[in-house]
Amino acid sequence: MSKNIAISDDVYRRLKREKGDRSFSEVIDEKLDSGGTLAEVSGQQVFDAETADQVSDEIESLSRGTVERITDETA
Rank of each mutant, 00 (worst) to 15 (best):
D9W: 08
S8M: 10
I28H: 00
R17W: 13
R22Q: 15
L15D: 01
I5T: 11
E30N: 12
S23P: 01
D21I: 03
S25F: 09
R17S: 15
K3N: 11
L38V: 04
K16Q: 13
E18F: 09
G35K: 05
E30Y: 05
E30S: 14
M1F: 07
K16R: 15
A6D: 11
G20E: 05
E18S: 12
V11K: 09
K31Y: 05
R13H: 12
K3Q: 13
D33R: 08
S25G: 10
K31S: 05
Y12S: 09
M1R: 11
F24S: 02
E18A: 09
L15R: 04
A39Y: 03
S8C: 10
E18N: 10
D33G: 03
Y12C: 09
I28T: 00
Y12A: 10
L32N: 04
D33Y: 06
R13Q: 15
E26N: 07
S25V: 12
R22E: 09
D10I: 10
S8H: 06
D33A: 13
S34C: 03
S25Y: 14
A39G: 03
K19G: 02
D21T: 11
A6K: 14
L38I: 06
D9R: 14
G20I: 07
L15T: 03
I7R: 07
K3E: 13
L32G: 01
A39Q: 05
R14C: 04
F24N: 01
A6W: 14
S8A: 12
V11C: 10
L32M: 05
V11A: 11
K16E: 13
D29V: 06
K16W: 05
E26P: 01
R13E: 08
G20H: 14
N4I: 11
S34T: 08
M1I: 13
L15H: 03
A39K: 05
I7W: 10
S2T: 07
I7A: 05
I28F: 00
E40H: 00
S23Q: 04
D10T: 14
L32V: 08
F24D: 01
I28D: 00
G20D: 10
S23A: 05
F24G: 01
D29I: 06
D10P: 04
V27Q: 03
K31I: 04
R14F: 01
R14G: 06
N4M: 12
S25R: 15
D21S: 15
N4P: 12
S2V: 09
S8V: 04
I7L: 13
Y12W: 14
E40L: 00
I5V: 14
K3G: 05
T37C: 05
D29Q: 13
S34Q: 06
L38H: 02
I28P: 00
D33Q: 10
V27A: 08
E18Y: 08
A39I: 01
D21Y: 14
D21F: 11
V27I: 11
G20Q: 14
D9G: 13
S2C: 09
D9M: 08
R22Y: 07
G35V: 03
S34N: 07
E26Q: 15
R22C: 06
S34D: 03
D21K: 12
K3D: 13
R13S: 13
V11R: 11
R22P: 00
T37N: 04
K19Q: 10
G35F: 00
V27C: 08
A39W: 01
L15C: 07
R13C: 06
R17G: 12
T37P: 00
T37W: 03
I7D: 07
